[in-house]
Design a protein around this nucleic acid. Structure first.
Lengths: 195, 195
DNA sequence: CCGTCAACTTGACACAGTGTCAAATTATCG
DNA sequence: CGATAATTTGACACTGTGTCAAGTTGACGG
């Protein structure tokens, strides 16, 4: 892959993210993205075989830029389970708005494209993994609600932290991100911690 | 509107609900529904102008069949705010699986069709109204968390009871409906009630 | 300075699904 | 039975994705 190919590829990916962020993701067409990248629609297909793969690649491109692992470092380093839970929620709450535009596009494709479905499921599985780690830390401290298995607790936390919940609270209900963070943290503690 | 027209209309609506329930709603085409109803695709368009309107009509048809108001009677009759909350959640939890297939189809169209969006938003607004009533009853009893406005509390309950949350817990996580009901009720109490 | 090869453009087309139209046919109802 | 409403058949426009082929541009090595 030549220097130029790589440059164009990056340009397309950036144009994809820009376009998704500015217009409603669902009605962003391949031709819109190509135009934003300054190439023809057909040229875009020389780099990415399908719309779904383009979106998936854009997600990875975004990941490479933001380095989610760094923001999770605080969570991993936490001394107690409770601290770990708080730090995890804080990191994730800060991350959602970043991935939301492309996430929305990917979610909208879930029904029609199995690849997009798998890609999004994969990312959500990573979040679930983080939830599970926080739950395990709580359990280790003996702070997990005793009528809840770790699996159930993970399901609950994962659902509480889902993009859909964030979307409804911040977009439909108009909550600020700070209000979301505060209330969801409280909610997660109420859901998981023993009395 | 003649007898026959009404019969056909009802047959189409029922076929729509059946089809939506048996196949994945997003990929149920107008032609599939017409076939299930035993008429031609074009004949279906004589009764419903667009796919969106058909889905909306199917939702109303379903409503007429199930009589949601009756199941909410217990909630409205509740003596205390807490009883009202529990009864409301119970009624809604029983109702979600019923409306889920058509709701899923409507949700999938939200991005492309403004009418479908409005129709679904309207139904969700009705749920929100029920949430608000339960919250108001709690407030009247002085049982509402004092650091929460009624609006905020309603937002929270409404989100907790959203179809997406139900979907994730019961479909993705495999929770039984009973488990969903128990945990969401607990969650709602933890979210709203003062200590 | 000139080929060559890769990247890109232009324009055409197939395909699926929605929605529209007109003409012919079949039911239904008074 | 006859008028009219309901339905069928078949064709077509439109949108967006994805494919294909032929021609153009430009960078780079010899």
């Amino acid at each position: 892959m030549s220097r130029k190919t790589e440059q164009t590829r990056a340009r397309i990916l950036q144009a994809t993210l820009d376009q998704l962020a500015s217009a409603s993701p669902e009605k962003t067409r391949v031709s819109d993205i190509a135009k934003a990248a300054g190439i023809s629609r057909q040229a875009l297909y020389l780099h990415f075989p399908t719309r779904a793969e383009l979106l998936i690649a854009a997600t990875k491109h975004l990941d490479a830029q933001v380095d989610i692992d760094a923001s999770l470092a605080e969570s991993r380093a936490a001394a107690t389970g409770e601290a770990r839970l708080s730090a995890f929620i804080r990191a994730w709450a800060a991350h959602i708005p970043v991935i939301y535009p492309v996430g929305r596009a990917l979610m909208a494709m879930q029904d029609t494209d199995p690849e997009a479905r798998a890609a999004w499921a994969d990312r959500m599985a990573a979040v679930r993994h983080g939830c599970a780690a926080a739950v395990a830390a709580l359990a280790r401290d003996g702070r997990l609600r005793d009528d809840l298995s770790e699996d159930r607790a993970t399901d609950l936390l994962w659902t509480l932290l889902s993009v859909r919940v964030w979307e409804q609270l911040t977009r439909d209900c108009g909550w600020s991100e700070a209000a979301y963070l505060a209330e969801i943290t409280r909610q997660a503690r109420a859901a998981l911690l023993s009395a």
